[in-house]
Design a protein around this nucleic acid. Structure first.
Lengths: 205, 205
DNA sequence: ATTTGCGTTAACAATGATGTTAATCATAAC
DNA sequence: GTTATGATTAACATCATTGTTAACGCAAAT
């Protein structure tokens, strides 16, 4: 099958440009013409490959949700480790994933706020599996002396603490700038702090 | 000075409709015609009172930022209370403010992500004053036995824990639904949990 | 070398969104 | 009751955005 110049290369270039635009500006803020321009093609190509803006957006969303699900399961789903290591390593891995994908949480949050139906897609992929992970962690929590904790709450704690610095980056950047010379300092310290916060709560320090 | 029917009433109706639309859909997603329709007037009125979509949006953003600043200072800025009460009451007040304004955090977060310049506006109103509050809290933290903590980090912890349930509401709703009969249960428990998390971290329980 | 077929483009069509303007209406002031 | 004024509307103008289509080009297959 022949092609003029790039063929399938342009398809991925459009996808990459679309990802960047959608993550930065959201569905309504991103314009198909801008995406095409950033990909270096006419915007007709975008329609040629993906038919509509919606379909293109859908593709990005699903891909990103899958990635998110994968990392969450991977980070906390290792039942070999003792609880303390399982949690501290899980928190760190989750945080580092966010460092590598800083725009992702805000994107997902907004998408779910606009289209709550899509939560079903997440539930199907995530909660069946996390259900087991959470029940496993719950068992270990119940065995902890002097602490009554709830695995669901704990997961909410962890995700809250880890995600917030990324969704609120500009605000924290300004706030941290008053106390930290370098924003990178603040960020790195933040990861350790979150581990500390969770372990302290469980009396595991 | 005469008027046809409502006069200044329509101005506030437009503002209310605009607030709702902008909070729900963001700047790009909200349409001036929809706002006008929701306010029960022609969209020409919107331009008559506010000239442009941008100016209207600006008005909402500034108002909301002011409100946010006010609540943060009010919640944690009482130096009469001992640290433990100051924190637990601050966390609760902040959380309850969010219950009453659940869409606000996502709105502010997105606005700042799109227009980071506006952080200057926040800094001018907030950080001069929070600087003092934070330094005051820091002094008390330094006096705590066996804990080395950082007021800036502590504030980040608190805001993270409190804000996340609201920005990630659909996700948490689905997740909590697996473990809690009622989402309201989860939510109320969450407030207490956040107080507990912070106090545990400071060994104040 | 002709045909076939996908990739690509430019131009166009249609719709939607923002912003403007001239005319109308209601009310208060005189 | 006439006038003056601000509020309101309908209609319009303009521009941006999404989506389509017809023509063109390249490369491989025959």
């Amino acid at each position: 099958m022949g092609s003029q110049k790039n063929a399938n290369d342009t398809e991925v270039r459009i996808l990459q440009a679309a990802e960047k635009e959608f993550l930065e500006k959201g569905y309504a803020g991103a314009k198909t013409t801008d995406i095409a321009a950033a990909a270096g093609v006419t915007h007709a190509m975008l329609h040629y490959y993906f038919r509509t803006k919606d379909k293109l957006f859908d593709k990005i969303v699903s891909e990103k949700i899958d990635k998110l699900v994968e990392i969450l399961l991977g980070a906390f789903g290792n039942p070999e480790l003792p609880l303390k290591e399982r949690l501290s390593e899980g928190i760190s891995r989750h945080f580092e994933f966010l460092v590598a994908n800083p725009g992702l949480p805000r994107f997902i949050i907004n998408e779910l706020a606009m289209h709550p139906e899509r939560i079903d897609y997440i539930r199907d992929r995530l909660f069946d599996k996390t259900g087991n992970v959470l029940r496993g962690i719950q068992k270990e929590l119940d065995a902890l002396p002097g602490v009554s904790s709830d695995a669901m709450m704990l997961l909410a704690d962890i995700v809250s603490l880890n995600v917030f610095p990324f969704v609120a980056a500009p605000m924290l950047k300004a706030a941290a700038g008053q106390f930290y010379a370098d924003y990178g300092d603040f960020f790195e310290k933040r990861k350790q702090e979150n581990v500390k916060t969770i372990l302290a709560k469980l009396n595991l320090l």
